Simulated assay, not measured.
Amino acid sequence: MNTRDVVNRYYELANRGEWDAWTDLFAEDQVMEEQLAGRVEGRETLRSMMAGFPDMYAEFHNVPQHIVVDGEQAAVVSRITARTHGGDTITAKVANYFQIVDGRIRYMANFHDTAPFAVLSGA
């Protein structure tokens, strides 16, 4: 898959809640700078983390609004809408940066307002 295909698949799988297949998009030695979870190193660490994701959200959607691809790099502005199992709603604009090597996400960073996610910690 080329860079755009990987990015499109990233959002497609996330929006379907297919977290195991989503994790397979990442390189074994991936590094993710996740604004809420911090630095996540290694695909299997990410897989373990994502196994608990359905326990946090009853519904989750991350819809791209704008995608820019330049070779092995991509930047995406998207909008997250989610609902927790307790009925709290979350809406946030997000910017993601991807570095994709050999058809796998090698590095990713995301940036968003953390305030909407305070409902997850009860703050």
Rank of each mutant, 00 (worst) to 15 (best):
111 F>A: 14
17 G>V: 10
73 Q>A: 07
86 G>R: 12
58 A>F: 04
32 M>S: 10
58 A>P: 01
115 A>C: 06
110 N>Q: 11
93 K>R: 13
110 N>D: 15
75 A>L: 03
37 A>D: 09
97 Y>D: 02
34 E>N: 13
104 R>Q: 08
56 M>D: 07
102 D>H: 05
89 T>N: 06
105 I>L: 01
98 F>R: 10
115 A>N: 12
19 W>E: 02
62 N>P: 00
36 L>F: 03
72 E>A: 14
17 G>H: 08
14 A>L: 08
48 S>C: 06
123 A>V: 08
58 A>G: 11
2 N>C: 14
97 Y>R: 09
108 M>Y: 01
82 A>F: 02
81 T>A: 03
23 T>C: 15
14 A>V: 07
59 E>F: 07
52 G>L: 12
21 A>G: 04
50 M>H: 03
65 Q>P: 01
83 R>C: 08
36 L>S: 07
121 S>E: 09
70 D>L: 11
37 A>N: 13
80 I>A: 07
69 V>A: 02
75 A>G: 07
50 M>T: 05
109 A>R: 15
8 N>Q: 13
82 A>S: 02
16 R>A: 13
41 E>M: 08
52 G>P: 04
122 G>S: 10
59 E>P: 08
112 H>L: 13
51 A>Y: 01
99 Q>I: 09
99 Q>V: 14
84 T>S: 15
28 E>Y: 00
9 R>S: 12
68 V>W: 05
67 I>Y: 00
23 T>L: 07
66 H>N: 15
1 M>E: 07
96 N>G: 13
57 Y>D: 02
85 H>A: 05
64 P>G: 09
9 R>L: 07
118 A>L: 05
38 G>R: 01
5 D>L: 03
37 A>R: 13
56 M>I: 11
84 T>Y: 14
73 Q>L: 05
96 N>T: 15
103 G>L: 06
84 T>H: 15
3 T>N: 06
93 K>C: 03
116 P>S: 10
58 A>M: 06
73 Q>F: 09
81 T>W: 00
43 R>A: 15
38 G>Y: 08
63 V>Y: 00
25 L>A: 09
60 F>T: 12
37 A>L: 14
116 P>A: 06
2 N>M: 14
44 E>K: 14
29 D>H: 09
38 G>K: 03
112 H>P: 02
62 N>L: 06
5 D>N: 04
11 Y>N: 06
10 Y>D: 14
113 D>Q: 01
2 N>D: 15
94 V>L: 11
97 Y>C: 00
99 Q>G: 03
56 M>S: 14
3 T>K: 12
79 R>G: 07
15 N>C: 08
102 D>Q: 11
120 L>Y: 07
19 W>S: 08
110 N>P: 02
88 D>V: 02
25 L>N: 13
85 H>R: 02
104 R>I: 01
108 M>G: 03
1 M>H: 12
121 S>A: 13
82 A>Q: 04
88 D>A: 12
90 I>P: 01
71 G>W: 03
69 V>S: 04
80 I>G: 04
52 G>M: 09
3 T>L: 11
6 V>D: 05
115 A>Y: 12
64 P>E: 02
79 R>F: 00
22 W>R: 09
31 V>E: 09
93 K>W: 01
81 T>P: 00
7 V>D: 00
23 T>Q: 00
13 L>F: 03
80 I>N: 03
7 V>H: 02
26 F>G: 02
106 R>L: 12
86 G>H: 11
